[in-house]
Computed example of a mutant assay.
Amino acid sequence: MRKFIKFSLVALLVLAAGTGAAIYYFAKVKNYDVADQKVDEIIEKQYSIKLPDGTSLPEGIKKDADGSVWIDKNGHYILENGSTVAPEKWMTENSQLGNSGIASANTLADGGNDPNKKVTVDTIKNRYASTFSNLQGQAENQLGTLVGQAKKEYTQKLANGEKINPAYFYQKYSNAADAVESKTDAAFNTVYNTLKNDLKNNNYSTSHAEPFKTSYENVKAQQRNELMKKVTGR
């Protein structure tokens, strides 16, 4: 699996603005007024995920023109009426419908016009590759927009002759990056649980999905450790 999140935002700001260890310390012991409508608009933008054809979904779910479904920061489906539905609850309550719809779509995808040809594990997993990739792109776009906003604010403060407080920048944009990470975790879990449900409905062990989760967590841990070394100097 390709990398989902790049934890470079905080390191960029900290290293540009001052001494990492001191910033890290003061940002943790003091709270700053970091409210910013522009930042909120960036981190509150919903993800939309393009699930494989045949995936069972709630009636009235909100979709983009390409069929991608909207999810909120908790990974819940967003309906046209503004309400939300938890994917796991939906899949549990509609297991038979999901089995019929997903198995049929997978069988056709794997076996052409032969409905009796059994779908394979690899076919099921491959059908989610573009979904994970698209989610990665959305996460990177939002983090990129955050970086742009951070640079813009930093540059404006310099141009206005304002005092730069590195700890303020650290706290503000690390919190924002954490919000994007949390939202991406929820979106990942929605796709991941749908993949597991797909495997289960086709009579395969859900353990076949575990490498996706392991890779995702390993990449995040590695990137976070590298970032903290840059920020704290340890």
Rank of each mutant, 00 (worst) to 15 (best):
105 A>D: 04
133 S>T: 12
88 E>W: 05
112 G>E: 13
109 A>K: 07
82 G>H: 03
151 K>T: 07
114 D>R: 06
109 A>I: 04
131 T>A: 15
95 S>D: 12
146 L>N: 00
84 T>I: 04
146 L>H: 01
81 N>W: 10
121 V>L: 09
126 N>E: 12
92 T>G: 09
140 E>T: 07
123 T>S: 08
145 T>Q: 13
92 T>Y: 12
136 Q>E: 13
140 E>N: 08
110 D>T: 04
117 K>A: 07
100 S>W: 11
149 Q>V: 05
137 G>C: 06
136 Q>D: 14
153 E>M: 06
143 L>F: 02
107 T>E: 05
154 Y>G: 03
89 K>H: 11
122 D>L: 10
102 I>T: 09
85 V>Y: 03
100 S>K: 14
118 K>T: 11
82 G>D: 03
126 N>F: 03
97 L>F: 11
132 F>I: 06
111 G>C: 06
156 Q>P: 04
105 A>G: 05
89 K>N: 11
86 A>E: 13
159 A>Q: 15
143 L>S: 00
135 L>A: 01
122 D>C: 05
141 N>I: 06
95 S>F: 12
97 L>W: 10
141 N>G: 08
98 G>P: 06
90 W>M: 08
111 G>F: 03
95 S>Q: 14
152 K>W: 01
93 E>L: 13
116 N>F: 14
132 F>M: 05
130 S>Y: 10
141 N>E: 15
157 K>C: 03
90 W>F: 15
94 N>W: 12
83 S>E: 14
78 I>P: 06
125 K>H: 03
122 D>S: 13
121 V>N: 09
149 Q>W: 08
96 Q>G: 08
97 L>R: 15
134 N>C: 02
111 G>I: 03
93 E>Y: 09
135 L>N: 00
140 E>K: 09
147 V>K: 12
125 K>D: 04
139 A>E: 02
84 T>R: 05
83 S>Y: 02
92 T>N: 13
100 S>D: 13
108 L>V: 11
136 Q>F: 09
83 S>F: 04
115 P>G: 03
152 K>V: 01
118 K>W: 03
160 N>G: 07
91 M>R: 15
106 N>M: 15
158 L>N: 02
125 K>P: 01
152 K>M: 05
116 N>Y: 14
132 F>V: 05
139 A>Y: 03
99 N>S: 13
105 A>L: 04
134 N>I: 07
84 T>L: 03
103 A>Q: 10
130 S>E: 14
153 E>H: 02
112 G>M: 11
122 D>H: 07
92 T>H: 13
151 K>R: 10
155 T>F: 08
80 E>A: 09
126 N>Q: 13
116 N>S: 15
80 E>W: 00
116 N>R: 11
148 G>Q: 14
109 A>P: 00
132 F>E: 01
120 T>F: 02
117 K>H: 09
86 A>S: 10
128 Y>P: 00
138 Q>T: 01
159 A>F: 12
87 P>Q: 02
144 G>F: 02
98 G>H: 15
99 N>L: 11
132 F>W: 05
153 E>F: 01
81 N>S: 11
116 N>H: 12
94 N>M: 09
83 S>P: 01
130 S>G: 06
100 S>T: 13
120 T>I: 02
110 D>W: 04
87 P>R: 02
146 L>K: 00
128 Y>H: 05
103 A>T: 13
121 V>P: 08
80 E>S: 07
113 N>R: 10
129 A>E: 14
140 E>H: 05
106 N>T: 08
125 K>W: 01
138 Q>Y: 01
155 T>N: 12
